[in-house]
Design a protein around this nucleic acid. Structure first.
Ligand SMILES: [Mg+2]
Length: 400
DNA sequence: TCTGGGGTCCTAGGACCC
DNA sequence: TCTGGGGTCCTAGGACCC
């Protein structure tokens, strides 16, 4: 934890990749996200689109209204992952200690790298040049003595930014920022700040940790007390393994038909179970999420004594949870299903699994590979064709 | 304008045990 | 008999991030 730490953030990542793959889009507003006219939001958009007030998480319909001439494209996650990997490889040329924290962000521990790459400014310049020359993308870099401050710094001069915070100046750096730059304090917390008359970083710094804990809870208060003075509570510490697996789908139209809902449950049960298997994990807790026509959202979960062994077991419990959750009448906007208590340690357990005389089990283990290759959905005949698929998309690159 | 999908972590209350 | 406290597990909901 000595630093300096680099936080590297790829600029307008998904939209930039689309421009790389479709150079004719250069200079045009590009919106990557849901199908315009359907239900969903903007995932990422180019800076030209941002000039129209479009931003991530905006309902796609509003983005459309703001700029009908923008190019609307679907998310091509596999492609972005591929590019993301190649950038990570570049980062690893600069430092052996690279931690990816999302598809377009990573921390580089640059401690002791001065001899190799010169000052942080020189190293960052080199990093940006390598990325630009080899991928055509630009990144924004934040440099600081801890990860929290580096993360905030990288966001200040996007795109193609570089902000360096000298060691010892972290608190001063934070004091110069509006509260909205406080990573980890989102909409609700900003609202509470206003209600409490906390209008600037100075106001927050003036509060004692005990006071902040009284106002924002034990963990929240501790976090805010540290964050506003540029101290790092190791919130970006590498996590050992994933703790949940889930999937959810917002239907193009609200559903009331039980068979169609069952088909969705089955599809989701298969999906999360296969992902669980692929990751070599075990789970004993299943959670169902429902969002109704009025956007009211609820969840129900249920634990059992032994880990799930087949997707059929998952499906059966999913139906039980669903019956306990749904009134049978209210149109359902979204259904989701997930495992919330992954146990990866005692995980693979393949020997044990194969010892059991469970034909369905073996069948599914075998199908795991097929699923990997073909992403085939496995459905009982009764439900085949009933699964809820989003309508086919328009060809990529077509302006709407 | 009409609100995605994938996650992480925290809180709080009740059950149960020591 | 009553009270307190702590730990763990479970469940529901919420805030937040990309
Ligand atoms: Mg980014």
């Amino acid at each position: 934890m000595n630093g300096p730490w680099f936080h590297v953030d790829i600029d307008a990542f998904f939209a930039s990749v689309e421009k790389l793959d479709h150079p004719e889009l250069n200079g045009r507003p590009v919106v990557v996200g849901a199908h315009p006219g359907g239900r969903g939001v903007v995932s990422t958009c180019s800076y030209e689109a941002r000039a129209f007030g479009i931003h991530s998480a905006m309902p796609i319909g509003e983005a459309w209204r703001r700029c009908p001439s923008a190019v609307f494209l679907p998310v091509r996650m596999e492609r972005y992952l591929e590019i993301s990997e190649s950038l990570l490889a570049i980062f690893r040329e600069l430092s052996p200690e690279v931690t990816r924290i999302s598809i377009d962000e990573a921390f580089l521990d640059m401690a002791g790298m001065e001899r190799l790459w010169g000052s942080p400014r020189e190293a960052a310049g080199r990093l940006k040049a390598m990325v630009r020359d080899r991928s055509g993308l630009t990144v924004s870099v934040g440099v600081a003595s801890n990860r929290y401050v580096a993360k905030i710094a990288s966001g200040l001069e996007k795109p193609d930014g570089l902000v360096i915070v000298e060691k010892g100046l972290e608190a001063l750096f934070m004091l110069g920022l509006p509260l909205s730059r406080l990573w980890g304090a989102g909409e609700k917390t900003q609202e509470r700040f206003r209600d409490l008359g906390i209008l600037s970083m100075d106001d927050l710094v003036a509060k004692s940790e005990a006071e902040l804990q009284r106002l924002f809870g034990q963990a929240g208060g501790r976090f805010l007390h540290a964050a506003c003075r540029g101290a790092d509570l190791s919130i970006f510490e590498a996590r050992p393994s994933s703790r949940s697996i889930s999937t959810e789908i917002t239907f193009e139209r609200d559903l009331v038909d039980r068979e169609a809902l069952d088909a969705a449950l089955l599809e989701m049960a298969c999906s999360i179970f296969f992902r669980l298997r692929r990751e070599g994990g075990r789970a004993r807790t299943l959670a169902l999420k429902l969002r109704l026509f009025d956007f009211s959202t609820s969840s129900k979960r249920q634990s059992r004594g032994e880990p799930y062994r087949t997707s059929l077991e998952v499906f059966e419990d999913a139906k039980t949870l669903f019956e306990r959750s749904w009134d049978g009448r209210s149109p359902v906007r979204l259904a989701g299903l997930g495992f919330s208590d992954l146990d990866v340690d005692g995980a693979p357990g393949q020997a044990e699994l194969f010892r059991e005389d469970d034909r369905r089990q073996r069948f599914e283990n075998a199908l795991r590979d097929i699923e990997d290759r073909a992403a085939t959905q496995l459905l009982p005949a009764r439900l085949v064709g009933r699964a809820i698929r989003k309508p086919p998309r328009r060809p990529a690159g077509e302006p709407q």
